[in-house]
Amino acid sequence: MNRARHASFICTLVVLFASCVPGAGARAADAGGVTLRHIDWPRSFGYRVGDTVPVRIALDIEPGWLPDRDGLPEPGQGDRQFELRRLDVTDARERCARCSDYTLEWQLMKSVRSPQTLRLAPVTLRFRKGSEVRSVAVPAFAIDAAPLLLWQSKKDWIDSVHPGYRASPFTVSAPLRRAGLWALAAVALLAAALWAGGRLGAQAARPFARAWRDVRALRRRTSGDAPALALRALHHACNGTAGCTVFSETLPAFLQQAPEFADLADDLRAAFAASRAHFFGLPPTGRFTTLAEIDTLLRALRDRERLHAWRAAAVAPRPAAPAR
């Protein structure tokens, strides 16, 4: 008799234990009409105050069954340890044709002083179809929570934020130095490219350097007005250098004023003649009708302009030191 009682008591304990094990609920909570298919439990460790603990419950709900009034927990409910933040209901067709996922998102409200196991209380979901009522029991669940600690010092801040985790420190000075050198090289390369392209320093403001850059940019144009625009750029550069408008008749005076271009006088005259032909309808001269020709002339003018600027800078008197 005692043996039978013992056996019965042990069987009861086994059943009770099985009902408490996560995942076992799916098998045990078959209420008919609403069937618990599966529970996705969250991880059971590494929580701190404020963290959320989502529990997803997959239910197979036959047609006509709806959540009963007060049959679902309301956001804001909970105990001193956990509080329900929200309850989401989504279709879960991937599980079965009538399945829905009920996701309970709990938030840990308790700030523990030392690592501690906390119990998430069991929940019952109740459904009704007419006068019939079915309940689905979601068993209790336990998680491990850790305290938030103040930083004792910068030195061990990783340990203090994440207790139990040992970060392996490494030196960053070498990678930083390497990255700095690469950045320096990139900046130097960029500066060199800008300088070579005439976009840096005093040469950026020099009229023929600017005109040559503009004409180079015209090479990408597919329209036929590129030579005309290039001739305009040439005129603007001449005007900019002379400080006034340079026309064919004043070209000799311009060359007298800027003798560094004297060896290009014939080309300049030809370019101006081509410009007159193009813009004023005179007979074409046959020269400087293409972008490449004007580009070549402007490059030569830019070179002489640069050389002249360097020479001028070299012979310019240095400012006298202030008297003591």
């Binding site: 005309a228 305009r232 005129h235 603007h236 005007n239 006034c244 813009f279």
Partner: peptide, 8 residues
């Protein structure tokens, strides 16, 4: 005026 106004 002639010095300042450019063409083209």
């Amino acid at each position: 005026v002639l010095r300042t106004i450019a063409s083209p």
